[in-house]
Nucleic acid binder design. Structure first.
Length: 883
RNA sequence: GGGCACAUAGCUCAGAGGUAGAGCACUACGUUGACAUCGUAGUGGUCGUAGGUUCGAUCCCUGCUGUGCCCACCA
């Protein structure tokens, strides 16, 4: 027997059954859910919880439907983040900066990984995520390394990957190139300094405007627009860079915008993407004035060497001012690029890097989605995907850090590069190239962008390049669930790399969920202090409640506003379900495997079976369409409204004989043993069906309660053999519900005590209810009930939906005027509705163009409403006569 | 500058070309009853705005306003 108190933790803490949940069905249809591998440094945040919960719902639903489900877990090595984190710890322990070697760092990171890395996996288990943890993979494990090398070599040999000397975004804190996607643009306050550049002979000067005066040492020209008459006289002449007096030409280039700044712009090809272009166009030299930490190097006057860029800036400004060449300082808003991991201002920098020709890989990736081979849910995210892929630029994949997949390229003493899957292959190539054995090769120091391996995740996890059975089975039969923010980073790269390596799409569906926000709709962030910790929520309300709430709130394409309050709704619902089962247990309901819903005879049982089937069908449709919100809502309504509010209240008289005894000790004598058994079987069966469809969302409590009722196995409900010709029963129960509601309403409005008996007369009823209403209407929830009599003296009538009139006897003063007024209002509402329908029916265009069903429906509506109006008018007349 | 999404009850959000829905909140009543993490009955909305398409628009289309986001650029 269940405890009175619903305590989620007591059974959730035992998650061993959850591990069985990942059990596979070898010969069934394959379905794979690819868990986006969380960072090794990460811990479970609320966004993960949403993402993983939704995937788990899909996985569990598919298992119930009999698929062979592979729910593949993994962890991402997260290159930059992890290296920064562990470095910080190492330096904090007293190791001197600069003394750290590659070997030492890697050893420390692996050590750290073994001890505190991947704590998130245990948190996943706590949430009930039913991955096959025996298959846990790491993006930097041996199999992954092999796959990544093979991919790199293949791309290189096919000319889709190359080494180039180019300008890239450089992160001076990390000391590495990063990709365009890792650049965050932020608006900040800045200044525009207007500086005089004097002509060689000092007869005149040009004023340029710059936000980066420290880069004047790298200037190689001043550019003006060819159409700008103001500067015509300077073109071809030379000006002096202030402070260093180096001479640079004034050139014409369309890049110079007469509207911006002063119209004359200094050109520093080493430190600006646009200037680099101008430099290339005009064959200008490149003067790089920074080192890898963005400190000024030996290209600048000695006093500036070794200085940081911002310090140098103020120093330069000072000196310019002293030299009286600083004409003006303007305050401006400017957008600067920041590193998403380091948070520092990035520098454009020209270096040797490896690039993937993303443009070529993008074409089939675009095609696959255009042709519908991969569908985004919701579909509009495809726009974003196309927009990015259609404008994609070369992907810089090399990183100047140590933690990651080392680039499989080796260099000979002359700089000759050998790209190979391993060192011995590289040596073989070298032997062929040099014609001799003892040429010493040095491996590229750099590692690959973390997303390079993440992009291969769909097939790395299936053991590619091995032709494994799992690869053949699951590849392409996959779904990916993720947030929109990594469509570029991950989804598009998986599609590109998978199509390249396997010539086939990796998955058919990409479900994009919303962002979890705080209750005001703000993004959660540590600095704002508004972060909701899912593990705390699980401790407080139970993992199932958190999962249920996330599912309930995840309307497609919409962000979720999360708060404790909304989780309470989920927790309350699960408490309700707990009590449903408790009630069933107290009344001896046990799941009977051989129960056949076709055999039930009682209208109440037929009605609830019908409701259950409808709910199961609708929920199945919702799961199929990934409408987790609908599924959660439908189950909620089925359990709370149909089962609890009506069925359970109605069958109390059958299950609990004492409830049938009224105040006078009169016994209604309904407890035929057979009927009681029917109700018990039906109730247990219905509850179990509801639990089964809830299981994907709330597995812990479902498993627990299903077991409590004696249904040990959780499978999807089957209705194959059920013919539900229950129309009469449904009409009876619906009529009864209406009677009960009317009675409750009248009692409330007359402030009648709930246990006061009410005599009612039912006139003009067409539903064959026999003694059914008489019998079950006696128990109106926690009220002593109603008696059907032949007539009542003073009554309040109500017109029921079927057209019958229910007169409820009241032995109190009735304010007839008020009643009449209410009825008149009711008539007004109905008349408005009827006239609207009539208006349409009388419209020729409507008659010609509306569908038959719509016309029939309108006719029916007019008929029903007219009848109601007539009856109410009749009632009003009799009330007026009685006055 | 280019693009995407959203606007429905006090709040959070579903919804469908043909009678506007839920949860929360609110009002009233109710507790030895499976459940007060509860029950019962209520209150509450010209579906942002202006046009268009349609027999009919809250729903489809266009403009506008507001909100959020993505991309690009900036001397």
């Amino acid at each position: 027997m269940l405890d009175k108190i619903f305590d989620a933790k007591s059974f959730e803490s035992n998650f061993s059954f959850d591990m069985e949940a990942s059990t596979r069905v070898p010969n069934a249809e394959p379905f794979m859910v690819l868990l986006p591998p969380p960072n090794i440094t990460g811990s479970l945040h609320i966004g993960h919880s949403l993402c993983f919960t939704l995937q788990d719902i899909v996985a569990r639903y598919k298992r119930l439907k009999g698929y062979d489900v592979l729910f593949q877990p993994g962890i991402d090595h997260a290159g930059i983040v992890t290296q920064l984190l562990v470095e910080k710890q190492i330096y904090a322990s007293g190791v001197e900066k600069g003394s750290l070697t590659r070997e030492k760092l890697l050893k420390e990171i692996w050590f750290w990984k073994e001890n505190s890395g991947g704590a998130i996996i245990n948190q996943l288990k706590k949430l009930g995520i039913s991955c096959d943890f025996s298959r846990l993979r790491f993006t930097l494990d041996e199999k992954s390394k092999r796959a990544v090398s093979k991919m790199f070599v293949s791309l290189y040999r096919n000319g889709l990957l190359y080494r180039g000397h180019r300008m890239v975004n450089w992160d001076p804190l990390i000391g590495s190139a990063i990709s365009d996607l890792e650049v965050i643009e932020k608006e900040v306050d800045g200044h525009l300094w207007h500086i005089k550049y004097e002509l060689e002979d000092e007869s005149d000067y040009v004023v340029i405007a710059t936000s980066r005066p420290e880069t004047i040492f790298g200037d190689v020209a001043v550019a003006v627009n060819p159409k700008d008459s103001r500067y015509k006289k300077f073109v071809g002449k030379k000006v002096k860079i202030p402070l260093i007096d180096r001479l640079i030409p004034v050139i014409e280039d369309k890049y110079a915008d007469p509207e911006k700044g002063t119209g004359a712009v200094k050109i520093t090809p080493a430190h600006d993407f646009n200037d680099y272009e101008v430099g290339q166009r005009n064959k200008l030299p490149i003067i790089d004035i920074f080192n890898e930490k963005a400190e000024l190097n030996e290209e600048v006057p000695e006093m500036f060497q070794g200085m940081g860029r911002f310090e140098a800036r103020s120093k330069v400004v000072d000196l310019l001012e002293k030299k009286e060449v600083l004409v003006k300082v303007e305050d401006i808003k400017q957008t600067l690029p920041f590193g998403d991991r380091s948070g520092v201002v990035l520098e454009p920098r020209i270096t040797h890097q490896w690039f993937v020709n993303a443009e070529k890989l993008a074409r089939p990736a675009i095609k696959a989605v255009k042709e519908g081979k991969i569908k985004f849910i919701p579909k509009h995210w495809e726009n974003l995907y196309f927009e990015w892929l259609e404008n994609i630029r070369p992907w810089c994949v090399s990183r100047q850090i140590w933690w990651g997949h080392r680039i499989p390229a080796w260099y000979g003493p002359d700089g000759q590069v050998f790209v190979a899957e391993n060192e011995s292959d590289a040596n073989k190539q070298a032997l062929k190239f040099y014609g001799k054995h003892d040429v010493k090769l040095v491996q590229d120091e750099d590692v690959l962008d973390t997303w390079f391996s993440s992009g291969m995740w769909p097939f790395i996890t299936l053991d590619w390049p091995e032709d494994s059975e799992d690869l053949r089975k699951f590849y392409s039969n996959m779904i990916v669930v993720t947030g929109f923010d990594i469509i570029f980073f991950w989804v598009s790269r998986m599609i590109m790399m998978s199509l390249y390596a396997l010539k086939e799409v990796p998955f058919k569906e990409v479900y994009i969920h919303g962002l979890v926000r705080d209750k005001q709709g703000n993004k959660m962030s540590k600095s704002k202090g508004n972060v909701i910790d899912p593990l705390t929520l699980c401790d407080k309300y139970g993992a199932d409640a958190v999962r249920y709430t996330l599912a309930y709130m995840s309307s497609p394409g919409r962000d979720l506003k999360m708060s404790d309050r909304v989780v309470e709704t989920g927790r309350n619902f699960l408490t309700k379900l707990w009590n449903v089962v408790r009630f069933a247990q107290m009344n001896g309901c046990v799941y009977n495997n051989s129960f056949d819903p076709n055999d039930v005879t009682h209208p109440l049982n037929k009605w609830i079976i019908f409701e259950t089937k409808n709910t199961v069908d609708a929920v199945e449709e919702s799961y199929k369409n990934y409408r987790f919100d609908d599924a959660a809502r439908l189950i909620y309504q089925g359990i709370w409204n149909s089962l609890c509010d009506w069925y359970m209240e109605f069958v109390k008289p059958i299950l609990q004989e004492s409830a049938l005894t009224d105040g006078n000790g009169e016994n209604y004598n309904l407890s035929q043993t057979l009927l009681k058994k029917d109700v018990r079987d039906t109730m247990a069966w219905v509850i179990v069906q509801f639990i089964r469809i809830l299981y994907p969302i709330a597995p812990f409590i479902s498993k627990k309660l299903s077991g409590e009722l004696g249904a040990t196995e959780i499978v999807w409900p089957k209705f194959d053999g059920i013919q539900l010709d229950f129309t009469d029963s449904i009409n009876q129960v619906e009529l009864l519900k209406e009677i009960v509601t009317s009675v409750r309403s009248i009692k409330q409005s007359f402030r009648m005590p709930a246990n006061e008996k009410l005599n009612v007369v039912l006139e003009g009823n067409t539903v064959d209810i026999g003694s059914f209403a008489e019998t079950y209407g006696k128990i109106v929830h926690r009220m002593t009930g109603i008696s059907f009599v032949d007539s009542v003296d003073m009554s309040v009538p109500v017109v029921l939906n079927g057209g019958a009139i229910l007169r409820m006897g009241i032995d109190r003063e009735i304010d007839i005027q008020e009643k009449i007024a209410n009825f008149k209002k009711e008539i007004a509402d109905y008349t408005k509705m009827r006239d609207a329908a009539l208006f349409r029916l009388n419209n020729e265009d409507f008659k010609n163009k509306a569908t038959e069903e719509v016309i029939a429906e309108h006719n029916k509506r007019v008929e029903v409403l007219s009848e109601k109006i007539n009856k109410i008018e009749h009632i009003i007349r009799s009330l007026e006569a009685a006055q």
